[in-house]
Simulated assay, not measured.
Amino acid sequence: MSLPHAILTALTERPATGAGLARRFDRSIGYFWQATHQQIYRELGRLEEAGWVASQPVEQGPGRQRAWRVLPAGKRELRRWTGSDLGSRTVRDEFFVRMRAEAALGQSGLDAQVREKLEEEKRMLALYREIEARDFSDEQMTRERRLQHLVLRSGIRMATQRIELYREALEILAMPAQR
């Protein structure tokens, strides 16, 4: 996935100022596609140059805020991209490389980092469950809401799996090294 398409998705859901988009991005798409606020602002400029979004000054906001919205060309691009080939999934997970390095080198202090990641993942899972209880408790959901809920449930499953993985890794890392 690309950052432009993540931004187009967020703005298609609801137009926003750059700051508002960055905050919303942090609370939704940012859980599975990370970008700094600086990257988002830079990309907004590129999307505007491409004719996919437009902005106008916000008269009552602080500073030089601009309100961003998706143009028809941006919606066409998002529709094209959404329907295009997903491609293959590339796995790049530093944790797995570190586990292999730990196996090759012996004890290296990886367990402390794994404990931190375990706690971080527990916090993320709690947040996901809080969002689910707050935003997806109604039984009669639309297609759109069900798709959003599916994305959230996927995050819940991944966080749960990651917690199990970290716990198992800590059990193994506690074993004495053979080297």
Results as ranks from 00 to 15, higher is better:
Q107Y: 09
D111N: 11
L78V: 03
L127P: 04
A73F: 01
Y128E: 02
L118G: 15
R66H: 12
R76H: 10
T82I: 06
S108L: 10
E94M: 10
R69E: 11
R69Q: 14
G83Y: 04
R80M: 02
Y128I: 05
R69K: 06
Y128K: 03
D93V: 03
K122A: 15
M124E: 11
E102T: 11
V91F: 12
E116P: 08
L125D: 08
R100K: 09
R64G: 12
Q65C: 02
V70R: 00
Q113C: 12
R80E: 07
V97Q: 04
L78E: 00
L71G: 02
R64S: 15
W81C: 15
E120P: 02
R89S: 14
L127G: 13
A112F: 13
M99F: 13
A112N: 06
R76L: 15
A101V: 08
R123Q: 06
R76P: 03
R69A: 14
E77V: 05
R66W: 11
R69D: 08
L127I: 04
G106R: 04
M124N: 11
E102L: 09
G106H: 09
E120F: 12
Q107K: 14
G109H: 03
K75D: 06
D93P: 01
R76E: 15
V114M: 10
E94R: 08
T90S: 13
R89W: 12
D85S: 04
L125V: 05
L105D: 03
M99E: 12
W68V: 07
L127N: 10
E102H: 12
G87W: 00
E94D: 10
L110A: 03
Q107F: 07
A101E: 10
G109L: 02
K117D: 15
D93F: 06
Y128Q: 05
Q107S: 10
R100W: 09
R64F: 13
R100Q: 12
D85E: 04
A104Q: 02
R98Y: 03
A104R: 01
L125N: 05
R123P: 04
A126D: 09
W81N: 13
A126Q: 06
G74A: 02
L71N: 03
E94L: 12
E120M: 11
K117P: 05
V97T: 11
K75I: 08
S88M: 00
R92C: 14
L125P: 03
R64V: 08
G106N: 09
L110I: 07
S84I: 01
L125C: 07
L78W: 01
E120L: 08
S84C: 05
L86S: 12
R123D: 07
R115F: 11
D111V: 08
R80F: 08
R76Y: 06
A104E: 05
A67S: 14
V91W: 08
E77W: 05
D111A: 15
G87Q: 00
L118N: 09
L110Y: 04
D111M: 08
F96P: 02
W81P: 09
R98E: 09
S88R: 01
S108P: 01
V70M: 00
V70F: 00
W81I: 15
